[in-house]
Design a protein around this nucleic acid. Structure first.
Lengths: 417, 417
DNA sequence: GCCAGATTGTTAAGTCAACGAAGAAACGAA
DNA sequence: TTCGTTTCTTCGTTGACTTAACAATCTGGC
């Protein structure tokens, strides 16, 4: 007897969120009856996804049998593809990192060459820790920048035009023999935080992702929100100063222009003393390298560096507040490489802003936290995408024809009932 | 044989969105099989919700039988409760207004008194057009300001403290004998636009609602998005100038302070010439009255009035763009009393902003429109809330216990499998 | 130690939504 | 009229989920 996908998914998701839970707990959490829980759980145990791990104290009768995910039963590969580097992680079913490697980025190489290399590196990752390939559910591949919405299988980050129409997902699927899921890094990071237990059973959460740009990923009731064309969460071009400087996106005063890593680096370079002490005097290196240098200077206690970061943080806090107000968020996680480095400066300022000025704070606070794995969040999230897509096949919504009227032949005059 | 709620709801929603559609059209739109569509449609016809209205041209065989909502089969009452006035509308199943009355606002009267009056006025509304009370599905009641999240049955608009803990929904339910649904005005307006056909089968839409404040309602795949505590869409406190003036919400540079109707009126009053010509010289009347006066002055061609409104529009456009970027919107409707008056000034500016600077404009444009019923949008939306809640009972999500760990007795040491 | 009562978990039978297959009805074209 | 096509319905099956009865396990009291 096999369950409708949703019940299995719902039960698995509650077990994941709870960490440890009994069948009775599942009954109250999911709303299913004991009979259903019994069969669903047996199914999950048969598939090896769930194990019984002990007993709870008695509440007056038989003790509850506790269930947990069988973390070692399945694995997923997450790949963060970027111009400057490719990060690979192998996670178990619980979203915990089992292995991790970093390799050279895509650079200027041909897509086909890179795909072949990635396939070999994925294999090396899996074999390096002796995980059987059959236990690997698939590969999640994420990249900065917007997705090409049309086919859902091409990534077009601004700096990688060569990849624009390349069927990346299909190619990697063929090369590795594993299912491949694509998405953008911020969305993946948000799902990763949700899946790997940083966020419990929380309903509405967002991940503010800062790499060289700023993005946000949104998770609503355990499902990633993608918007009309998969570009939801584009918070980098939130307006925080309607009279501010022009942005390449066509607008003015975008938070990315005023407070993104590039803006931080530019401000630091404009200060000769700080440039010298932070080692920015040479010719321009990558933004992320320079941003790290500014962050180190701030950590050393250099007031000018700290002031620049705090100014950035206040703008980002304003954008975060706007986001939290619109989405009515419960949890906001700061993640991504830039927050991995400078999160200690940003966290208190964003947190203070939301404590003080979140519109619905009377109803509930927004829990602002720093990701425990900010540096590799999007790769971990990419793996979580696989875990979710393979284990929690969502009920797809209606697929209306583009033009409902056109779907019908011309109506004739009414001829009565 | 009765269908699972979702299939009936899905079919009804597609019929509503399409206006006219055949069973074959429903098959492709919903993904159900012909057999299922056949039985569901028969059910809907038996209930009187749907009628066959004619035939389409043949495509080579039997002509399709066209289906439509039976607009006159059910009705819903929408009530917009405000300090200054109460608007009542009676709509049919298609969301079209059948009757409408306006009465005095809540003022300083006791809640119980107002509820009794409302009940009488609802009855007058229904009987005024000779609709049978059994055909009225219920009453939707909306109000500006945040909902009290705890019980879901108290409305606490800032200016109506007396109502804070009053069980408004229950009281009105008892008084009228009809089911009552509560929500805020912006969310209702968004659903109203969706339901009454202004927005076809569109997936992601928002209504920007401007009354005396600014709010937004969000509709995702036909379902209103409410956020963690029902306060989603709070766009009035989106930051559009991080260094702007203080707002009562605790933040700075909120769009409501810089560009809301109150700000527009204040700017106009600061201009002696405009104050005189627009008739603002007397003591302060209500913000909406004064805003209307400024709008009329702008329409008469007074440059100073127009400049003030255009400045407001540019700020609002920036907030709208931030919202569209984050949600990846397809449709944005301007609605509410203030846009009913001044929409002709705001629409082109907001539209231009989104054409020029919406981040994902390469993938798709945002369709910005002015509501056809901006003045009564939230009352119509209130009625749509009823139509949806009675006819499209949503599949409720998981209801996790507040604290999953606490739901279990203490675990004992692992005792092996 | 052992039984009463409570709680947990399983099995069995019934219900209902949705599907596939096959047939009935409607229609245009030869 | 006949044939092929398309639309729509009927019938029997599948499978998810439920209720109801039952089996297993534990605490507490004697």
């Amino acid at each position: 007897m096999s369950q409708h996908a949703s019940s299995k998914a719902a039960v698995l998701d509650v077990i994941r969120a709870a960490g440890t839970i009994s069948r009775v707990g599942l009954i109250s959490a999911t709303g299913f009856t004991g009979a259903t829980i019994s069969t669903v759980v047996r199914r999950l145990i048969d598939e090896g996804l769930v194990v019984e791990t002990g007993r709870a104290e008695s509440t007056g009768g038989k003790r509850r049998v506790l269930l947990q995910l069988n973390h070692a039963s399945r694995y997923a590969v997450g790949v963060h593809l970027d111009h400057a580097g490719i990060t690979y992680v192998l996670t178990n079913l619980g979203g915990a990192v089992v292995a991790r490697i970093s390799r050279a980025g895509a650079g200027a190489a041909e897509p086909a060459t890179v795909v072949n290399r990635m396939s070999a590196e994925v294999t090396a990752l899996i074999e390096g820790v002796g995980v059987e390939r059959e236990r690997v559910l698939g590969v999640g591949l994420v990249s900065p920048g917007p997705l090409s919405a049309a086919t859902g299988m091409g990534l077009t980050p601004p700096a990688m035009r060569k990849w624009e129409d390349y069927p990346l997902g299909q190619a990697l699927e063929r090369a590795t023999g594993l299912p491949v899921v694509l998405d953008n890094d911020a969305t993946a990071a948000a799902l990763g935080e949700h899946w790997s237990g940083g966020i419990g059973g929380t309903a509405i959460s967002a991940a503010l992702y800062m790499g060289t740009g700023i993005g946000a990923g949104l998770v609503i009731n355990g499902v990633t929100y993608r918007g009309a064309s998969g570009n939801a969460g584009e918070i980098g071009h939130t307006c925080v100063d309607a009279n501010g400087p022009d942005c390449w996106c066509g607008a003015r005063g975008c938070v990315e222009v005023l407070a993104g890593p590039a803006a931080v680096v530019a401000a630091a370079r404009a200060d000769p003393a700080l440039s010298r002490s932070a080692g920015l005097t040479g010719r321009a290196r990558s933004v992320s390298t320079d941003f790290a240098a500014v962050s180190r200077a701030a950590r050393r206690g250099e007031p000018s560096a700290l002031a620049i970061l705090e100014r950035s943080a206040r703008y980002i806090a304003a954008a975060a507040r706007s986001l939290a107000n619109v989405m009515d968020l419960e949890v906001l996680v700061l993640t991504g490489p830039s927050f991995a480095i400078a999160g200690s400066v940003y966290l208190p300022i964003v947190r203070e802003e939301l404590d003080r000025a979140f519109f619905s704070r009377a109803a509930h606070a927004v829990d602002v936290r720093l990701s425990r794995h900010a540096a590799t969040a999007s790769a971990i999230g990419a793996a979580a995408l696989v875990l979710q897509s393979e284990l929690v096949p969502l009920s797809e919504g209606l697929k209306l024809p583009d033009n409902l009227a056109a779907a019908e032949p011309a109506p004739l005059p009414v001829t009565g009932a």
